[in-house]
């Protein structure tokens, strides 16, 4: 199960809406081993595409150096699908590289409603998990 705060949930959805129709992407870092997504980092989609996302390579290095320095890991890796359902595509599955992360997919295809779903992607096996949104993780 993914447990995150209302503020983090809202920020991810707002980022996805803001970048629509391009895909939005980012990370929520947390202390190593805690499974607590506390620090949201919006990343630029270097592909600037409605069907693809990729973190800029220099940004990626800075992100991991910063997480390392803070004893953090990527608890959540999120991105949006802007015309399709919030489910990992073949590309998402092939490129998933954080076996410990919750992969959050947000679909912005409907302007009035949002789909927000979370998955584990390990060795190309996708497992959906419940999402619990709490007022605070403190």
């Amino acid at each position: 199960m993914l447990t995150l705060s209302t503020a983090t949930y809202d920020a991810i959805v707002a980022h996805a809406r803001r970048d629509h129709p391009d895909e939005a992407c980012g990370v929520v870092a947390g202390p190593v081993g805690s499974d607590r997504p506390l620090r949201l980092i919006e990343m630029l989609n270097a592909a600037r595409s409605p069907t693809f996302y990729e973190f800029d390579s220099a940004d990626l290095l800075q992100l991991y150096k910063q997480m390392d320095a803070n004893d953090e890991e990527p608890v959540v890796v999120y991105h949006s699908h802007t015309a399709t359902e919030a489910y990992p595509s073949r590309t998402d599955i092939n490129l998933a590289s954080e076996p410990n992360a919750h992969y959050v997919l947000v679909s912005t295809r409907e302007p009035e409603s949002v789909e927000f779903r979370s998955f584990r992607i390990v060795d190309s096996v996708v497992t959906e998990e419940p999402v619990e949104v709490l007022a605070s993780l403190e």
Binding site: A47, F52, V77, H79
Partner: peptide, 10 residues
């Protein structure tokens, strides 16, 4: 060494 963080709907 860092794997790219990438994906997308297509």
């Amino acid at each position: 060494i860092l794997p790219a963080v990438a994906g997308g709907s297509c």
